[in-house]
């Protein structure tokens, strides 16, 4: 069987999702039985140009140069995966969009680098799979590649974090008065945060059919202020229409 060619590319992000891949441990060797990693600048000296069978596209788009590169990569990729919340939604870097001149708040003098509005990659190119999370879950990445190697199209989980949280037999955080975004957030992470009594902060983005109105009511009942609810929504996916039009 011919090995699938994998590429990793990164734009505006912390690169944490690359590390989720590297910490797969010996499972990486498993993956290499059916694949060749031909492009991954963070760990490779020689990087092929393409075409690629599976491309992991990490990071949001925040400059003309990145946009140009993204379009080029899409052309060379059979199956393009948005790697992590920055690529899927804009993520934390997209918080810059709420400021008029964020650069002036950070750099005391002007620099050559010109930033644009921070955008998710599907605003510019077709995405074949969304690997959500800040960071992604390494097991999900492993399973997606396994599926593709076996000729299957991987399926995203279209239910909320609460489902996985319940399966882990956790006591619901709301019962202890801890507000949590689990009810409206994409599953697939296996609920690591509520499993250590830390609330889900929505890093995998809002489900399209998530009941935002009811979520707001629930949060208000737990004593969360309007300002705090806004801040909870405007963190990872503030560009998403689900959060953009919401009235709190």
């Amino acid at each position: 069987m011919k090995k699938l060619k994998i590429a990793f590319f990164g734009h505006t992000s912390c690169k944490g999702c690359f590390f989720e891949f590297l910490i797969l441990g010996e499972k990486i060797l498993d993956l290499l039985k059916g694949t060749d990693i031909v492009h991954f600048k963070m760990i490779k000296e020689y990087n092929e140009k393409g075409p690629f069978d599976i491309t992991f596209m990490d990071g949001a788009i925040s400059s003309e140069k990145e946009l140009e590169k993204l379009k080029e990569i899409r052309e060379q990729s059979k199956f393009l995966i948005a790697l992590g919340t920055c690529a899927c939604y804009g993520g934390i870097p997209s918080m810059a969009n709420v400021f008029k001149h964020p650069e002036k708040m950070v750099y005391p003098e002007p620099i050559d680098h010109k930033s644009t509005k921070v955008t998710p990659i599907d605003q510019h190119v077709k995405v074949d799979y969304y690997l959500r999370g800040c960071p992604i879950n390494k097991e999900e990445l492993f399973n997606v590649v396994k599926d593709l190697v076996n000729g299957k199209i991987p399926r995203e989980k279209d239910y909320c974090v609460c489902v996985e949280c319940k399966l882990r037999e956790n006591r619901c955080l709301f019962e202890d008065g801890i507000p949590c975004l689990g009810p409206i957030t994409y599953a697939g992470c296996n609920a690591p945060c509520p499993s250590v009594r830390a609330p889900c902060d929505g890093c995998r983005g809002p489900l399209p059919d998530g009941n935002i109105k009811e979520m707001i009511n629930l949060l208000k009942k737990s004593g969360v202020s309007r300002g705090d609810i806004k801040r909870m929504f405007k963190k990872y996916a503030l560009m998403d229409k689900k959060f953009k039009r919401v009235k709190i």
Binding site: G59, M95, A96, M105, S115
Partner: peptide, 11 residues
């Protein structure tokens, strides 16, 4: 450094 700016101090 060509890594894009991310303005944490602003965020």
């Amino acid at each position: 450094v060509q890594e894009s700016s991310r303005y944490f101090e602003a965020f």
